[in-house]
């Protein structure tokens, strides 16, 4: 049932299917808010300036560490909608290898019927998080190659 048990592509498909069942935007926002509430707490020792994601209207933190060959991400935001969107991004990208992360575009953003409801600022916030996730993947990939 956890994201780790699904492949990265399956995780995206699951999100898209989940949102297919939802009705109008209020239902979609309620669901995203629920996901935001369920996002695991962010490790307080990681709440550092260097882990802040720039380019978001709300405050966003993201940190990643290697566990075997996979990168585990922790993230947080003070805005619930953003937390929910981050939770979706982590379901897709956390617990994946750098290669998987770099090969997988975030198709779910456009396919969950939210893109027209996210203002440019908010969409940019999510994009900024995903860009940062990909930077981690590039960095860890380089490290494992030189190791």
């Amino acid at each position: 049932m956890t994201a780790e048990s699904l492949s990265i592509d399956k995780a995206q498909e699951e999100i898209i299917e989940e949102f297919d069942y939802l009705g109008d935007w209020t239902e979609r926002y309620k669901h995203i808010a629920d996901l935001g509430r369920k996002l695991p707490p962010f490790p307080e020792d990681q709440r550092l300036e260097e882990n802040k994601v720039k380019g978001c209207q709300s405050q966003v933190w993201l940190s990643g560490h290697l566990s075997g060959e996979q990168i585990i991400f922790d993230a947080d935001s003070d805005a619930l909608i953003v937390r929910g969107l981050i939770a979706l991004a982590l379901r897709v990208y956390s617990g994946r290898t750098p290669e998987e992360i770099l090969e997988t575009p975030p198709e779910f953003i456009n396919k969950i019927g939210m893109s027209e409801h996210l203002s440019a600022n908010r969409a940019n916030g999510l994009q900024a998080v995903i860009k940062q996730i990909k930077r981690y993947a590039v960095a860890f990939q380089a490290r494992t190659e030189t190791a």
């Binding site: 926002y29 003070d78 805005a79 953003v82």
Partner: peptide, 21 residues
Amino acid sequence: GIHPYDVGTVLDQEGIAIRTG
């Protein structure tokens, strides 16, 4: 208990233009 940013998101859906921040 609700972030201004979240409120702004909902109000925008209702056609209401305000500023948050």
